[in-house]
Amino acid sequence: MNNIVVHIFRFLVFVLIQSLVLNSLEIGLGIQLMIYPLFIILLPFETTLPVLLLVAFVMGFSIDSISNTFGLHTSSLLLVAYLRPFVFNMFSPREGYDPLKEASIFEMGQRWFISVFGILLLIQHLWFFTLEMFNINEMLYVFQKTILSAPLSFLLCILLQVIFVSKPKER
């Protein structure tokens, strides 16, 4: 289940969906969908922070180079990877994380997933749009973009898990 091939496959799927489909969708109202933080969340619990950072860097770099965004995705994904252990510790279950489990909505439960992933996704979207506009006068527009895009990205991530992440077998 947690083997490396699954993660490499997911890496490719996420990069291709994000850069070829989502980055060229025009929804209006400044909405932009970003699903790649989900990949970083789904990496095994025992992954160490340096590995997380390097994986995030490679992923962001490949998305950036396909969609001409010059380091924007890389920077926001690095932030997610860096904050992941802190947010995971904040919401850790009483007996700690089970290394056999995966951080998906099925195995960790809805409440855990909504709070952990919600926080990280909101931070990532805010960071991304702030850097993209980079203008104090446009902060309202940045907030509008973040507040409209983050829930939609969140829903899309849940949908992706239903499709790609297999449900745990009854044990």
Binding site: F57, G60, F70, G71, L72, T74, S75, L78, L79, L131
Partner: peptide, 9 residues
């Protein structure tokens, strides 16, 4: 890594 990404941007 962050400095690298931001400096290209």
């Amino acid at each position: 890594l962050q400095v690298f990404a931001l400096s290209t941007y």
